[in-house]
C-alpha cells in the first residue's frame, strides 16, 4: 500500500486489518527520540496521534517497564479508558507485547479481544509483522512531513530573500537617483561660483587698471613735482580708494554667495 498521509494509513488499517486477525481494539505505540506515535484501530474507526510527549495507557507503561508479553483476563484492575469497555458476555481479554529493535526505539502492541472477536496465539506472528512494518511506514511519513515542512520553510525563506532583494534594489535605485541629483546640484553650484568669481574679477580689475595706467604714466617721462601732485596723485588716490571699495564689495558678496550656496 502506498499511503502518503497518516490519515490514509489509518483508513487502510481500518479496512484491511480485520482480514488478518480478530480484535475489538488494536493499538500500537511507537517511540523514536522525542516523537511518540499511537495507532488505534476498532470496527468504528482508526486514529493515529503524533505527539512529543509519551501518551501511554497504564497497561502500556506496565509493558514498557517489565518488557515481557502479557495476557490479562481481569481488565477491571487496569484502569482502561472507557472506549475499551466491552459487554460482560464478551469476556474481554487484553494481550500486550513489548518489542525492542534497538536502544532508541520502543514498540508496544496490544489487542483487545473477546468472545465474538477471538484473538489466538497463532495470530501473534502476523501481529508482530504488522507492528514492525507499520513502524517503518509511520516514521517514513513523519520524515516526509518534516521534509515538506522544511521545504515550505525554505520556500518561505527564499521568498523573503527575494522580497528583501527587491527592497534593496529599489533602495539602490533611489540612491542612484539621489547621487545623480546631488551631482547636478554640485555642478550647478560650481558653475554659479565660477560665474561669481569672474564677475568679481571684473569689478576689481576696473580700478586696478586705472592705478596701473597712472603708474605707467609716471614711467613715461620726467614729471615736474607739481604736475605729479596736481594731475597724477589725486587720480591715483581716487582709483586706489575705488579699488579698496571694489574689493570690500567683492568680499561681502562672495561671502553672501557662499553662505547661500551652502544652504
Amino acid at each position: 500500500m502506498r499511503c502518503r498521509t497518516m490519515e490514509a494509513v489509518a483508513q487502510s488499517f481500518q479496512v484491511n486489518l480485520k482480514y488478518l486477525f480478530n480484535f475489538h481494539t488494536f493499538r500500537a505505540s511507537y517511540n523514536r527520540g522525542n516523537l511518540y506515535l499511537h495507532l488505534e484501530v476498532t470496527a468504528a474507526g482508526a486514529t493515529i496521534t503524533k505527539q512529543e510527549c509519551s501518551g501511554y495507557l497504564c497497561f502500556e507503561e506496565d509493558l514498557l517497564k517489565h518488557r515481557v508479553p502479557k495476557h490479562w483476563q481481569n481488565l477491571a484492575e487496569l484502569a482502561l479508558p472507557l472506549r475499551y469497555k466491552l459487554p460482560e458476555e464478551e469476556k474481554a481479554e487484553l494481550w500486550g507485547w513489548y518489542i525492542q529493535n534497538d536502544e532508541s526505539r520502543d514498540i508496544i502492541v496490544s489487542v483487545l479481544g473477546g468472545a465474538s472477536k477471538v484473538f489466538t496465539r497463532k495470530d501473534i506472528a502476523f501481529l508482530r509483522l504488522v507492528a514492525e512494518n507499520l513502524e517503518a511506514k509511520l516514521f517514513e511519513l513523519c520524515l516526509l512531513q518534516e521534509l515538506d515542512d522544511k521545504n515550505s520553510k525554505l520556500q518561505a525563506a527564499f521568498d523573503k530573500i527575494n522580497e528583501q532583494n527587491a527592497v534593496i534594489s529599489s533602495i539602490m535605485e533611489y540612491q542612484q537617483d539621489v547621487i545623480i541629483e546631488r551631482t547636478q546640484e554640485v555642478a550647478s553650484k560650481n558653475a554659479r561660483l565660477l560665474e561669481v568669481s569672474v564677475l568679481n574679477a571684473h569689478t576689481v580689475r576696473e580700478p586696478l587698471s586705472r592705478v596701473l595706467g597712472l603708474v605707467n604714466l609716471l614711467e613715461l617721462r620726467e614729471w615736474p613735482l607739481n604736475e605729479i601732485q596736481e594731475s597724477i596723485m589725486p587720480r591715483l588716490k581716487v582709483s586706489a580708494q575705488d579699488l579698496d571699495e571694489a574689493l570690500k564689495e567683492v568680499i561681502e558678496k562672495s561671502t553672501a554667495d557662499l553662505i547661500k550656496l551652502k544652504a
Partner: peptide
Amino acid sequence: DMEIFNFIMVTSIKN
C-alpha cells in the same frame, strides 16, 4: 565714462 582713463590715454598719446 571714467575721466581718469581719458587722462591716461591723452597723456600717453601726446607722449
